[in-house]
């Protein structure tokens, strides 16, 4: 079963077109939405959340995102990069407000999370550091036990220690109930390598790749070869290539096959960032 089903979602702005986006978020999975800044990640999330008017259909938890919007949002936890309830409230006041939005609001869990994150209860949010603010947003987003988390750039601008702490929270959230799902957008691909089950890669408003993370990290490979060696590799055996002064770098989705077929002795394991760069900068 899928927690989110996105079909043919499109949105046009001046100079930008989110072009027929379709992908699913399976129940129990963490899906990472990656892409450059301005590629369409946030627009996709806004379309899913009905913050913008878009074409296409979005089903969340088996319900239509437009018709059953309010019902759906009761089971949803959201973190947005640049927006929150108010900067002029304290965490304690936030809890008192959230109680009125969610009948499932768990004050004890929220207090526990504040303690765990070392967040002061009585301090105004505007005086928090960006790491503290993000931890608070995450604490708020999971304290009503949502079935789905939608997170837009939750780790951007944070130092590695805080980022790691935040990724642990997401892992804990999923482990607590295996039917829960997370849709997480980020341009920090290393975070997603550690946590995501699937990757959806958007470039210039289009999905260019969607695949299980394990497949990308295990099956994909980068062949480094000379011009002559490259000329022997058939087009169907690679995805993109990049040429530098002295060598060719070729990205393949089946490293074992290419290894056998062309008797290549060593193939590098790519990171998701490498794959992303091949798709953006590489040639076909």
């Amino acid at each position: 079963m899928n927690t989110i089903e996105i079909k043919n979602v499109s949105k046009k702005y001046d100079g930008f077109f989110l072009n027929n986006i379709s992908f699913d978020v399976p129940a129990g999975a963490i899906v990472g939405l990656i892409g450059e800044n301005g590629a369409g990640k946030t627009t996709t999330i806004k379309a899913i959340l009905n913050i913008i008017n878009s074409e296409g259909t979005v089903q969340i938890l088996g319900k239509d995102s437009k018709r059953d919007e309010k019902e759906i949002k009761k089971d949803l936890g959201v973190v947005l990069d640049d927006s929150f309830l108010s900067n002029y409230l304290t965490p304690k006041q936030i809890s008192s407000v959230m109680k009125d939005f969610y009948s499932t609001w768990d004050e004890n869990k929220y207090e526990e999370l504040l303690k765990q994150f070392g967040l002061p209860n009585g301090k105004l949010i505007k005086d928090f550091s960006s790491g503290m603010k993000m931890k608070l947003k995450i604490a708020v987003s999971i304290s009503h036990h949502p079935k789905l988390l939608i997170l837009d750039e939750p780790t951007s601008g944070l130092d590695p220690v805080v980022r790691n702490e935040i990724l642990d929270i997401f892992r804990m959230y999923i482990e607590e109930d295996e039917t829960r799902s997370i849709l997480l957008s980020s341009h920090i691909t290393t975070d997603l390598e550690h946590i995501s089950d699937y990757i959806v890669f958007i470039d210039k408003g289009k999905i260019v790749l969607k695949a299980p993370t394990g497949e990308l990290l295990e099956d994909y490979g980068i062949v480094k070869c000379t011009k002559e060696e490259f000329s022997k590799i058939k087009e169907e055996d690679y995805i993109r290539y990049r040429k530098s002064k002295y060598q060719y770098e070729v990205l393949t989705s089946d490293k074992d096959k290419i290894k056998k077929k062309y008797s290549i002795s060593s193939i590098d394991k790519p990171s998701i960032e490498d794959i992303m760069l091949f798709y953006i900068r590489g040639e076909r």
Binding site: I51, K70, E71, K73, L76, S83, F84, L85, N87, I150
Partner: peptide, 15 residues
């Protein structure tokens, strides 16, 4: 507007 909260409020269960 200062807190840019309008967008966040639209993610809450409120019409």
């Amino acid at each position: 507007e200062m807190s840019k909260s309008n967008r966040y409020i639209l993610t809450l269960p409120v019409t």
